[in-house]
Nucleic acid binder design. Structure first.
Lengths: 122, 122
DNA sequence: TAAATATATGAATAATTGTTCATATGAAAA
DNA sequence: TTTTCATATGAACAATTATTCATATATTTA
């Protein structure tokens, strides 16, 4: 076999039904891509740690770097990615730029993730 | 500056407070790592598409490959990753192996992600 | 037992990505 | 204006990863 023929698993009917359902309910290709891109942003422990700090307070880049024991450059690069996906927002105050969480989804998504991995222990 | 000195941004007190809060409330290093690993799994459009198919029904590998127009091998590799992070479970029935969503967190996380990216349009 | 079908997996390759280093930009102070 | 401080960013390198190809395993059928 190989290379997605229309029929496999010997049962033709079920297969056709599935294809129809998938075609009807699957989100647009761009939405699937955007979704994956969003979760990719959560998929790095540095960015996760940044989000946890911002969970507690609005913090400037410099303090973030100090709190996480990383260089200003590394933090700044990651903040740009977080901002591009609208997970954080920023506000300039003099020489400093303060970052904070952008909306409630960030907390919900992280909370659900934590619940999921904690289930492994039970 | 550079290389995370203890003090920066000229203000020492606020900084010390932040460091204390972060140290007290930041999850364990292993949990942060596991969280990032979990979201990394969501961060691929092929796996997202697999999850959307399983959203509707319990499906065998072969049908998944057909529905998503991908090779059996590619799907199988991704299913292994999804299973390792306990997002899907499997059940053997004769020659076929049927996969389904493992728990409710999958749906919640994806739903929250969709809500987040949809906000951009408003 | 041998052949056929469904799935799993190791190795290789191409593409993506996080951090570092050097440097640029932007704002305040001297 | 010049200097200093805080942040942003481009280029380069190392590390990770998704897919393909070939092949192995597991189950059923002949």
């Amino acid at each position: 076999m190989e290379k997605y023929e229309a029929v496999c698993c010997e049962s033709t009917e079920v297969h056709e039904d599935l294809l129809k359902i998938v075609e009807e309910t699957m989100p647009e290709e761009t939405e699937l891509y955007d979704l994956a891109e969003l979760f990719k942003v959560f998929g790095d422990s540095t960015r996760i740690r940044i989000l946890f700090v911002l969970w507690k307070a609005e913090v400037c880049v410099c303090d973030l770097a100090a709190a996480l024991h990383m260089t200003q450059s590394a933090i700044s690069h990651q903040l740009r990615i977080l901002k591009q996906s609208k997970l954080v927002k920023s506000r300039r105050e003099g020489k400093s730029v303060f970052y904070s969480l952008a909306d409630a989804h960030v907390r919900t998504i992280i909370d659900q993730g934590r619940e999921h991995i904690e289930e492994d222990d039970r």
